[in-house]
């Protein structure tokens, strides 16, 4: 900040330079626009509700005393869950910032997942699936205000592994569903598309598998895993095309439309 002085260098200034005045208090928040506040106030419609247990700590619909009521078209489940969380942690005065992370929980998820991986490697796919399901449930108990990335990555990894395990025991539908969920959780992660394609191939839907791989490659064009499986699907489709043309329907191996791999 430059100050403009009217007095010359030699002359005595008519004022003293004290310490600079304290900066005005930080304008953290502008006062809200009173006009808009009036609009907001005018739009208020009182809600008919009742307080429920514990200690009036939950909201129920006024007519039926239900937490989730279709008749009143309300759903207070999320509100009441958060209220209970705040109520039971009395030292928690408000939801902490997202970067406060529950380390213990992350560790529990990782441990359970590792147990699942060990069982998977040992060929005990049923047990591995149970472990993975448990890990997913532990992860979903994370406080809702923590960074979404944590839950997203944990769930995606665990479900991707579970999809692989389902594939091994021959439950292709569950495998497909898990892969689909993985894709919805992490749209740009190649693994989800890979698992989806594998499940679809097992279900003899190679065209759809090819589409899934292509979507995955659109996000990650250099992914070796996806490129490889795409080449195999193309090869397989070309062979089947040839077979249809030259031969009649007598296909050589009807029981296995899967390209030989992992």
């Amino acid at each position: 900040m430059s100050q403009t002085h009217t007095h010359g260098p030699g002359t005595h200034p008519g004022h003293t330079h004290g310490p600079p005045p304290p900066p005005p208090p930080q304008m953290a928040m502008r006062p809200p626009d009173p006009l808009m506040q009036a609009v907001i106030e005018a739009s208020f419609r009182p809600v008919n509700f009742a307080l429920g247990p514990p200690e009036n700590g939950s909201v129920l619909c006024g007519l039926h005393k239900l937490e989730k009521c279709e008749g009143c078209d309300v759903d207070y489940t999320g509100l009441n869950r958060l209220s209970r969380t705040l109520h039971s942690n009395s030292n928690l005065r408000c939801p902490p910032p997202p970067n406060m992370v529950n380390k213990q929980l992350s560790q529990a998820v990782v441990n359970t997942k590792e147990e699942g991986n060990a069982l998977f490697k040992g060929g005990l796919y049923d047990k591995a699936i149970q472990r993975y399901t448990m890990a997913a449930n532990i992860a979903s108990q994370r406080p809702p205000w923590e960074h979404q990335i944590l839950l997203r990555e944990e769930l995606a990894t665990v479900l991707s592994n579970r999809a692989a395990a389902f594939l091994e025991i021959g439950d292709y539908i569950s495998s497909l569903v898990d892969a689909e969920v993985v894709i919805q959780l992490r749209r740009n992660w190649s693994k989800g598309y890979f698992r989806k394609a594998k499940a679809l191939l097992k279900m003899d839907r190679p065209k759809e598998a090819r589409e899934a791989i292509q979507v995955g490659l659109a996000f990650d064009p250099d992914n070796k895993e996806l490129q490889e499986i795409l080449a195999r699907i193309d090869h397989f489709l070309a062979r089947r095309e040839q077979g249809h043309q030259s031969n009649e329907m007598a296909s050589p191996d009807p029981q296995s439309p899967i390209p030989p791999a992992s």
Partner: peptide, 17 residues
Amino acid sequence: FQTASEMMANERMRALL
């Protein structure tokens, strides 16, 4: 608001699960 946006995303994931 940061808390609120994380909660939105986390709730959506939980619903998906």
